[in-house]
Amino acid sequence: MHSLAHSLARCALANGARIVVNSPVSEVIIVDGEAKGVRVSGDSLLDDKTIWADRGVILNTHVKQIPDLISRDHVNTTFVQRIEDLSLKGGSLFVTNLIVKELPVYKDAPEEFSPDDYPVGMSLHCDTDNVMELMRTIHSFRMHPEHPDEYAGIWYIVHDQHDPTRGRAKKAGAEGHVITVNLQVPAPEYHRDGPDAVNKVKDEIVDNIKTVLRQYAPNMTDDKYIATPTNTPYDSEFRNMAFVGGNWEGARSSQDEWWSNKPLPEMARYRTPIAGLYHCHQTAYPGGLCLIAVPYNLMHILIEDYPEMKKSTPDWWYPSPWHITDEEGGTK
């Protein structure tokens, strides 16, 4: 998947953008209620430097991070409170990458269904009751499944089966395969026993996953595993800045946060209460999980706010004819 990021990065560079990595932003600089630049944190490549922006700043961060990046003096109290109140409840994913010497062979699989033809995604241990009970454990009791029998709907992908360019995992001279297994667990900040509860039993969960796998594929004995690098939701949160609360979904998806129930109506069109500051993240949509469409949609809004961009639009982009501008909609 990362090649998509690389190709987009190449496009951006070709068009004259500058990309600076290892530079976490510590603050958005606001002058007279307008976003004028960012300050990069002191322990980074740019070492406490300020980048001034003539036109504006686009935040591609989780909505929950906005209060940390802007001074609270510039927004009203409820704005911050409503952001803090957003539900991140919902499942998150415990991801373990099983590096194995051979692929599982399922005992009950039809013969013509060879390991080479296994589908990309596969669920094991999965019937409706099991899944419902798992959801109840996660969402109602706010616990991770403790017994292998509860591991419903384990979803795994055999990467190198379907994408030979990823190469073979090699360790200790042995040829291996990578199987990614995802298991639903509570998002860390909703875990009954605290955010690091799943981390504490990481190995145990991996062992349970192996147990379940062995029930279906008896060839997967312990000696078949080369390594099992694992990311809990809490780990993901540390490795990916936008994973606030370790929630894969960004935020809870609920009709009570959509349409006229938007908790942050002032940000409905990617604008923020700060002029020149835009929010372009999956969580710009309540419920999150709205990816890639966001920046495309944001362009419509930027063209409204920066008429000079419009002059050259046919050259680089054309707006959706369905877009109703604020002026047309009477909201401006």
Binding site: S140, S254, D256
Partner: peptide, 20 residues
Amino acid sequence: LCRAFEDTRDSLARFGLDQA
């Protein structure tokens, strides 16, 4: 009971899936 319907359902499921 919560603002979001889904969260309320989750909460009531503690008493049994039938309650949700």
